[in-house]
Simulated scan of single mutants.
Amino acid sequence: MAIMVVWSSPNKDGLTAAAKDKIMKGILNAGYEAEEIHLNQMKMEHCKACGKGWGICRTKGQCIINDDFAAVYEKLVQADGIVFVSAVYWHDITECMKAFMDRLRRCEAAHNKYLAGRRCLLVACAGGTGLGTVECLHNMEETLKHMGMRAYDRLPVIRYNEGYMLPALEKAGETYAIRLAEGFDMQY
C-alpha cells in the first residue's frame, strides 16, 4: 500500500516539514510505503482558465500546461491514500498548494472522478500566531468535497501546540495507514 504525502512550504526545516516528517514516520511505522511530493520543488503553474473558462480539463480531464502537474496527478490516482500538509498563509493553503489543487479540482470534478471517494488526511501548520489553521483546513476540505474526496481527520499545528501535536501526527499517520488497509470507512 502506498500513501502520497503532498506538502507545501518553502521552508524545508520548518514546522510544516516537521509535520510532514512525523506523518511519514507514522505511515512507515505501520509498515506501509510513504512518498513525499514537495510542491515547492516542482514546476507547477496556475490554471489559465483556457477557452471561455474551461479547457480540455472539462472534456478530457487533462491540463494543457506542460509542467509537473500530470506526473503528480498520476501518482495520486495510483496511491491508496493521500495526505495534504500545508503551511498557512493568510488563513489558507500556500500558493503552490492552491495552484495544484485548483488544477486537480478542474480535472477531477469536471471529468475524471478518479479520486472520488478517496480518504485523505489534512494538516495545516501555522508558525506565526496560529490564527488561520482552522480556516485553512476548512478550505482544503471544501476543495476535496468538490472532487468527491473525504477527510478522515483535520489536524492544526501551531507553535503553541507543536510539542504535543508533532508526536500526535506520527500516531495519526500510523492510524491513517492502518485504517486504509483495513478498509475503515466514515460516511458523511
Rank of each mutant, 00 (worst) to 15 (best):
R119W: 06
C107Q: 10
V123Q: 07
G132Y: 08
H138I: 00
G130E: 05
L137P: 06
C120Y: 03
L122Y: 07
V123K: 10
H138F: 14
A109D: 12
L115K: 01
R103E: 05
C120M: 13
N112F: 00
G130L: 07
T133Y: 01
R105L: 11
C120W: 04
G128D: 14
G128S: 14
G128T: 12
K113S: 12
T129L: 15
T133V: 15
C125I: 02
L115S: 00
M101G: 04
Y114D: 14
R119G: 09
Y114P: 01
M101F: 09
G128L: 15
L121C: 11
N112P: 01
V123W: 11
K113P: 02
L115M: 06
F100R: 00
C125N: 09
C125K: 03
L122C: 07
L104V: 07
G128A: 15
E135S: 12
R118H: 09
A126D: 13
E108I: 02
R103W: 13
V123G: 03
A116D: 07
R105D: 13
L115Y: 01
L122K: 07
M101I: 13
A124L: 04
R103S: 04
G117M: 06
K113W: 05
K113C: 05
G132N: 12
G117W: 06
D102N: 11
G128W: 13
R103C: 10
C125M: 08
F100M: 00
F100L: 00
K98N: 12
L137Q: 05
C107W: 02
Y114L: 00
T129N: 11
F100V: 00
C120G: 05
L122P: 04
A116G: 03
C136R: 06
A116H: 03
A124T: 03
L131I: 13
M101A: 14
A109V: 01
G117K: 05
R106C: 08
R119I: 05
L131Y: 14
C136G: 11
R119D: 12
H111L: 02
T133W: 01
E108S: 02
E108P: 07
A126E: 06
G130S: 07
N139W: 04
M101T: 10
K113V: 00
L122N: 07
L131F: 15
E135D: 15
V123P: 04
L137S: 03
A99M: 12
K98G: 01
C107F: 06
A124V: 03
A109I: 01
A110D: 13
E135I: 02
C120A: 12
H111R: 10
L137M: 05
L131R: 14
G128H: 14
L104D: 09
T129M: 13
E135Q: 15
K113L: 05
V123D: 05
K98C: 07
C136L: 09
R103P: 11
Y114G: 00
L104R: 08
G117A: 08
G132C: 14
A116E: 12
E108N: 04
T133Q: 04
G128E: 14
A110M: 14
Y114F: 10
H138Y: 15
A99C: 11
V134T: 15
E135G: 02
G117S: 07
A116R: 09
Y114M: 01
M101Q: 05
R105G: 09
T133N: 13
A126H: 02
A124I: 01
C107P: 03
T133A: 10
R119Y: 08
